[in-house]
Nucleic acid binder design. Structure first.
Lengths: 330, 330
DNA sequence: AAAAACAACGAAAGCGCTTACATTTTTTAA
DNA sequence: TTAAAAAATGTAAGCGCTTTCGTTGTTTTT
């Protein structure tokens, strides 16, 4: 009768060596002869042996596991970021445990504790709850997207302020005078604040003060749509920025229903520029974040912190944004 | 100087009990007094102790880790499926390791081996490579979305054949006579085959034979767009089904560029009906898969296999699809 | 030819837990 | 009141690895 899974000892016995030797061969560490090496490989193959990385981690101290904390996975920006992070980590032989905070500080907290218990080697956080204290207590390597946690945790972001500025400039250059912003929750852990501030900055330079409507993060889609409709009716804007593309798409949708012409009656610009949105809705003008660069830098920085903890690194990486001009702006 | 992380023993010493007692309290197993319980809790709190689940898994045999194998994470259907799977698993105190196969059998294979090494308690697979053998060798609990692996691995799916039928019926009822299908790769591990077959089935009953254009899974977006344009020019269809929404959106995009009116000149129907697409592009008619039901059933079935391996379960769960009627069909 | 260095391997401790099996103390039953 | 049952805690063996020391040959050096 086969065992469910074999151990080092089983392999060792079958190959007629000690388990130390097998371990050495597997880890390519220390001395062993070519002959025993191939014999051991053959035996492992034959037994379909898979080293137990739980045991390995327990003695070796590394799990090769990275926790990735996101707000959610359905937003295309997050989805693509996650995919690219996963790819980068896979290439470095790390695995990822996902943790959706669902905009719920409690859940984020629970996950931080869980991930710590699971001995992840590091953490990438791209959520935006205001629970910075929990991160400060962590002793393991962390890198953050957008959210600033103090000098010990590197922050990787794209230039949100400048993105907001660019968006405003585009709308104003296109002739907009009544500006409206649909923004995510505004607090200093949330990059949408910088975007909105950048937008306000340029608006003011043109003697305009945009109306800012915050979208509650726990709002349902229908509620969002209602808010959008209501605000458009009330403000009669001719230029709208949404601080993320999914909201921008909802805006376009509502404008269509209201029979307002884009960009003739109202210009619209979004934010994020995920590949999916760029490809499927090229009409939407949007501020494009360099998702691949962000993912790569998050991973590079984290892995360096893990594997070479003594090397000093930048505390902050800010990537420039780009603009995608679609037909939704002039 | 603080240690980086405390162990059971540290807690035990500090609380003045044996480490067995602490273990019992943590696991709420066996006898212990209310008094020591609260003392131990207090100590743990105070030390910010997190049980090492690696050690726990090594002795306890369970990791509470589930591997989720997906093709990718950027497709909204996958992204939402993943999100819902994660939610269900979190509620049952399981964590998820994601594994993007990237349409690459080699990577999928590597991940299967990796996940096995990591002692995951079970596997959910929603990828569509034709590497069924690797799964057969697995001794751990597996459930599959769509792909059939034989009687030992439950298959959860929505009714792909019927979805294809419905799509055809809608187009034909709307007056379409020259039918075109943009399909994913066609092989028996891929649900798009059933969708296409359902479509063909109804078409034939109306004495039509649709043209089927396969989209290679490794094609770039530009190549896809080119294929779409080319095929539309060649076939001059008046009814198009795409076996996934992302392709359907590209079709809409190309039709717009070609100045063909939807649905007047060409009707279009997609497949998947993720919330994101339903909300942001309600114009697109599409076959809606019950993503939540699929996720919940995948998780329920898997967890039951893990925790109550002796209970017999259905080998197959098929959920009905629904139709979302947008403005892209008559 | 002896000393030093290297190569190939093994024994055993230990990573931080769980758990079967004591052992001691308290409660309950008769 | 005393034996039996229940409650509270402890001891120690492992879980499957890595790793530090050995030990024993085999080369190399001079």
């Amino acid at each position: 009768m086969d065992k469910l899974s074999y151990t080092l000892k089983d392999v060792a016995e079958r190959a007629g060596v000690s388990l130390t030797t097998v371990s050495r061969v597997i880890n390519k560490r220390g001395y062993f002869s070519e002959k025993t090496k191939s014999r051991i490989y053959a035996t492992m193959q034959q037994m379909n042996y898979h080293p137990n990385s739980v045991a390995r981690s327990l003695s070796g101290k590394k799990t090769k596991l990275i926790g990735v904390i996101l707000t959610n996975t359905h937003n295309p920006f997050n989805a693509e970021l996650l995919e690219k992070i996963e790819l980068e980590l896979f290439n470095r032989e790390y695995k990822v445990i996902i943790a959706n905070s669902s905009d719920n500080p409690q859940k984020e907290r629970a996950y931080i504790s869980l991930l710590q218990s699971n001995q992840v080697d590091g953490l990438i956080t791209a959520s935006h709850n205001t629970i910075i204290d929990d991160y400060h207590e962590l002793t393991l390597p962390v890198v953050s997207l957008d959210r600033y946690f103090g000098p010990r945790i590197p922050t990787i972001s794209s230039d949100n302020f400048s993105g907001g500025q660019t968006a405003a400039q585009i709308l104003i250059d296109g002739g907009a005078r009544r500006l409206l912003v649909f923004s995510g929750e505004i607090n200093d852990t949330n990059p949408t604040m910088d975007r909105t501030n950048g937008f306000i900055d340029i608006s003011k330079k043109h003697n305009m003060i945009p109306i800012v409507q915050v979208m509650p993060s726990d709002a349902t889609v229908n509620f969002r749509k209602m808010l959008i409709r209501q605000e458009i009716l009330k403000q009669k804007p001719d230029g709208i920025m949404a601080t993320d593309d999914t909201t921008a798409l909802l805006v376009l949708e509502e404008l269509r229903i209201m029979h307002l012409q884009v960009p003739h009656d109202v210009q619209v610009i979004g934010y994020d520029g995920s590949d999916f949105v760029l490809q499927s809705f090229p009409e939407l003008s949007t501020i494009v974040q360099p998702i691949s660069d962000l993912a790569k830098t998050l991973v590079d920085t984290l892995i360096k912190k893990i594997e070479q903890p003594d090397i000093l690194q930048e505390r902050q990486y800010t990537f420039p944004i780009t603009l995608h001009r679609g037909a939704s702006t002039n």
